[in-house]
Design a protein around this nucleic acid. Structure first.
Lengths: 210, 210
DNA sequence: GGATGATCTGATCGTTGTCAAGATTGGCTT
DNA sequence: AAGCCAATCTTGACAACGATCAGATCATCC
């Protein structure tokens, strides 16, 4: 089959269908949104039969897991980039939060998938914990003055910050808030105002624990 | 048909099927969780044919809307109750937040439906705004020292508080946080610790606005 | 008491997730 | 180089889903 590459005729074996499926899924999530993603649609987009994905994923949910993992990587990357671009001040936490929220606004469907997967599985992927966004938050908290030896205090602070960012990420899309957003001078100002209301920008020390 | 009430034979016309469907839906959400809710399942639970609901709701999503509205009512009620039971201190905002999160933990599927519906429609139901949970938050913020005449500052604070509560509500279910939760002395202590990390308990004044 | 409109059923269509059985092929063994 | 094996992909099927439509049933009002 020497003409395989040039004509429409795909080889019977795809080569790297797993990767192709994940990318097709990402494309669909971006274009169609979270509602229009079905296993069959992903297979269609990748140009294979509806049953083909089952040789690479046990479930539909396992495909979504793969999409989620890619999303977490992408998020961490963008947060890292935001941090490195920001001038060194003491509001680096807010920079991180703004990057987090902006990711979720630009990729709402993927963000939902990321979050649902982490919620359904018992733990978040350890990659997230070790080298991902969670780690970035902890590092930045330590920079801001939290004692890294107080593990409880650090974890509590990180969880709190994460909760705040997640909450903002999901509520900020409400059309209802657009007037307020405009009044405050755009999206980033809006986010900074919210985060400063939540006092996320202030250097903090460990909390007293019972 | 004098025996209609006593025997199994339902009257052909249900009487108040709309109400029965909403209650069947609530039951299913509590028992089966959010995944196991289908229009057909709700109809089955209510004992009618799969097509019957379409005489009371245009859509599946319209049924979910009705479920969401009931959820918002229930949430506001529980928040009001928590507020009236709490001794008057200056951490009433935290009391409110704890009630909010506990509702979402006890009714996770309903909470998700509530939130999704509000997100898909352009605005949240005005009931929520006028007499619901949002109003409670605003009132409590004013109690805590926000100037009610500064509408922007008040709305910003309310949005921030709501974002925080929502974020905590969705992340607190993570199994991963259970050790931390136990270490802090149970769920309520955990929630209070998070909220205090976010500085939600402190009387606040209006934020400076550009 | 009979017509009218609301309500419910039954059948049906297109779509989805999932599975089993068969076709096809890359790669290892000899 | 020939042949076999296991991985991969397709075809066909099944149950369940959301949605629609024609027809059966009932309450209500003139």
């Amino acid at each position: 089959m020497e003409h395989a590459q040039l004509t429409e005729a795909r080889p019977y074996h795809h080569g790297d269908l797993r990767r192709a499926l994940v990318e097709a899924g990402r494309r669909l999530l971006e274009v169609e949104g979270g509602a229009g993603i079905s296993l069959r649609a992903v297979a269609r987009e990748a140009g294979v039969s509806p049953a083909a994905p089952y040789h690479h994923f046990r479930d539909k949910s396992e495909l979504l897991d793969a999409l989620a993992i890619e999303g977490w990587d992408q998020l961490a990357e963008q947060m890292r980039a935001a941090l490195s671009k920001a001038e060194p001040g003491r509001d680096r936490l807010v920079t991180l939060g703004v990057a987090y929220v902006q990711f979720s606004k630009k990729n709402p469907a993927i963000y939902r998938v990321m979050f649902d997967c982490s919620q359904n599985h018992e733990t978040m992927p350890e990659k997230l914990r070790d080298e991902g966004a969670y780690r970035l938050v902890c590092d930045t908290l330590v920079e801001s003055g939290i004692d890294p030896r107080d593990e409880i205090g650090l974890e509590l602070a990180a969880v709190a910050v994460w909760c705040a960012a997640h909450g903002v990420a999901e509520m900020v899309g409400f059309k209802e808030f657009e007037p307020l957003q405009a009044h405050l001078g755009g999206e980033e100002a809006f986010l900074r105002a919210i985060f400063s209301q939540l006092d996320l920008f202030r250097p903090r020390s460990a909390v007293a624990v019972g």
